[in-house]
């Protein structure tokens, strides 16, 4: 067994452990932490960096070989070689003293440093993966194979988490929408209930008014009929009288009854007018 074969056996074992951990990652922070912890078992590096560009964001994270700080995504930070790489997609391999990292505290102490960088594309996601190695931590061409595997797994998990987050957000939105609908449903049922009550009250009021009016009209009919029945009766018996007695016995009584009838009718007309005025004053005035 050559030294390379032995190395790769160990590397693939490390990768299978990495895959197992990765499958349990719940969010992006956990994902980056797992990458950081396992990276050193895959290949040698002094500095490792991934820049991601999707339809909305440009973000990156990096790992210093001598730092245990948890990696975090940094928004809108990129280096000039990454800009070139995003444009022309040509892998980079040249000597570097890592001066573009001078803003960071970690010292790389490079001994014949070398910058490697590759361009990856997955559907709507572009990546620039780069690393700095040196003679102390040499990266070799054969390591690219495991690096490809690493990036594949990383991207798969990254997209999965992104989808999960989106789904979660959609669920939250949906729940909010359902709450709004429930609230509106409640409001509507309240309105319907109130309207039902109002209608019932108005119906009852109308029924009461109707029965009152019916009672009034019944009384009116009766009151009118009383003197009228007298007049009819007097006419009936009028034929029994001599002409000379008619005036005294019958006509006077007809006159009295007719006057009674007239009074009753005038009273009814007066009351009806009042009732009509009352009803029409309740409706709002029209302009």
């Amino acid at each position: 067994m050559t030294i390379y074969e032995n190395k790769y056996r160990i590397t693939y074992e490390a990768f299978s452990k990495f895959s197992a951990k990765l499958s349990k990652a719940n969010d992006k922070a956990e994902l980056l932490e797992i990458v950081q912890k396992h990276l050193k078992y895959f290949f040698n590096f002094k500095y490792f960096r991934v820049l991601l560009k999707d339809e909305v964001f440009l973000k990156s994270f990096h790992v210093f070989h001598n730092s245990n700080n948890s990696p975090e995504f940094i928004l809108n930070e990129f280096f000039s070689y990454e800009e070139d790489l995003l444009k022309n997609h040509i892998p980079i391999q040249h000597s570097s003293n890592g001066e573009f990292l001078n803003n960071y505290d970690q010292k790389l102490n490079l001994n014949n440093g070398k910058l490697w960088a590759w361009y990856f594309k997955y559907q709507d996601l572009q990546l620039c993966v780069s690393l700095i190695s040196d003679d102390e931590k040499p990266f070799i061409v054969r390591d690219i194979e495991i690096l490809n595997l690493l990036i594949d797994s990383f991207v798969t998990k990254y997209q999965q988490i992104k989808l999960k987050n989106r789904l979660h957000q959609k669920n939250v939105n949906l729940k909010n929408a359902i709450n709004v609908i429930e609230e509106q449903k409640f409001q509507i049922s309240k309105i319907v209930y109130n309207q039902k009550n109002t209608i019932e009250q108005r119906t009852k009021k109308l029924k009461d008014q109707n029965s009152k009016l019916a009672e009034i009209s019944r009384l009116n009919a009766h009151n009118v009929r009383e003197p009228l029945s007298r007049i009819l009766g007097l006419l009936e018996i009028a034929e029994l009288y001599e002409e000379k007695d008619l005036k005294k016995e019958i006509f006077e009584k007809i006159k009295t009854s007719a006057k009674d009838l007239d009074h009753i009718l005038q009273d009814i007309i007066y009351k009806s007018n009042n009732a009509i005025e009352k009803l029409s004053s309740k409706t709002p005035p029209t302009k």
């Binding site: 029945s229 007298r230 009766g233 007097l234 009936e236 018996i237 009584k253 009854s257």
Partner: peptide
């Protein structure tokens, strides 16, 4: 209570 009504009924009875 109507005298005229009584008058009519009375007359009708007397002539029946």
């Amino acid at each position: 209570d109507q005298k005229i009504a009584n008058f009519i009924t009375q007359k009708l009875l007397q002539t029946s």
